[in-house]
Design a binder for these strands. Structure first.
Lengths: 221, 221
DNA sequence: ATTATCTATAGATCTATAGATAATGC
DNA sequence: ATTATCTATAGATCTATAGATAATGC
């Protein structure tokens, strides 16, 4: 049974499954309709174009992680500077990575679809870029207080995104996200501090982890 | 002017540009033909299906890096064990990464196209899997002689693949590949050994770097 | 009355084939 | 003779719209 309170949500769920599994261009509106159990043309009562369905899915993915990253970034931490800075990056990696690993469908692949590069989706790609920027700043903050290399944030972002590919190849395990977060800490030279960082990181996640996420672009003019 | 000695090569070059830029399904055979300057149907004198063009491109990309990785993996190194093992992984990351960064088109994205998952391309995906396995083994070898974590090879593979996304986002710089190789070494806890590792790594690259690569599947029965 | 679905279809593709014509290599 | 190109087209899509019918909410 396909989840979703409304027909609209069922359509989005079916589209998510098909777009992530076989791509946007290879998924016909008929295939989406069939997966929901309605006629092809009935989709157009809920969405005015096929692009709009993709846009809705793209928006939904990034918003949660971005909201969390903003919250962590804006928070004025307390405690030992080294551990605090490390915990911020750790928490963002863990939270973002967990979203990518455990969402119902592997929605991260949508970012890599060539269609997502189109002009209409620029707002969503901009959100992804903002997230990348926050990674970069958290990385710099951490690099300033320990002896890690420049570009730590970028490397962290790359490792998180690679979880998408790992999942697409069926190689995700239960701890892939937390292992990735730990790897970033080791890269920062904080292997010995890991227990303290992990603890502070889960503190951040329980504080900011369930921020109310605005449902994106529900045409509430 | 489009490079290529033969019409076949010109078609492959045009297809590479279009497939990597806008995807397989969004690229019509007409678009490829137009880019070459011939009629759509004339493509079918050189390739019997559109899939065959993609297959040719997929094969060409992995073969060089896989040949290099095999050669390095099979080589019985000499010198200090720690540096030797590190240099092998460093060299494979650097070589593979350099291919991905500097090829005429960003051919790595072809692996992420949903169409590449099709049955017919299983041989090419298998080659990519073999390359991943070699990364894993080189990682284990290195982990055995220094105090790095398990999964080093997998992390290295993920970082190399992320160069594809970096390039797709226009964020590649001249030293992205070598910076990635260095990052893996730091992750292995070999920051102090970097100069020696780099030297040994370039030794491996100059020894095995220009192995004659069989042109893949040129239907030479 | 409004919202959601349906049937039917226009118009625009797109891949691959058939068969004619031109270019090339002995 | 063989290889490479061309014109023309079959057959199968696919997206989105028009307009009819059914279901729902006052």
């Amino acid at each position: 049974m396909r989840p979703g309170a409304t027909a609209r949500d069922e359509i989005l769920d079916a589209a998510a499954e098909l777009f992530t599994g076989q791509g946007f261009a290879n998924t016909s509106t008929r295939a989406i309709a069939d997966a929901v159990g309605i006629r092809q043309s009935s989709l157009y009562h809920h969405f005015s174009t096929k692009d709009e369905i993709l846009g809705e899915l793209l928006g939904g993915t990034v918003s949660t992680s971005l909201a969390f990253a903003r919250a962590v970034h804006d928070d004025s931490g307390e405690g030992r500077q080294e551990v605090t800075s490390a915990a911020r990056l750790h928490a963002v990696v863990l939270f973002d990575g967990s979203q990518l690993c455990s969402s119902r469908w592997n929605l991260g692949v949508l970012y890599h679809l060539p269609e997502a590069r189109a002009e209409v989706f620029q707002p969503f790609m901009a959100a992804r870029t903002e997230l990348r920027t926050i990674y970069g700043e958290l990385g710099q903050e951490l690099t300033a207080v320990c002896d890690s290399d420049a570009g730590l944030g970028d490397t962290a972002f790359r490792l998180v995104e690679s979880l998408i590919n790992l999942r697409a190849d069926g190689l995700i395990s239960a701890d892939s996200a937390s292992a990735t977060a730990d790897t970033v800490m080791i890269l920062a030279g904080l292997k010995r501090e890991l227990p303290a960082v992990r603890a502070a990181s889960s503190g951040l996640i329980s504080r900011f982890g369930d921020i109310p996420v605005r449902t994106p672009s529900r045409k509430s003019a």
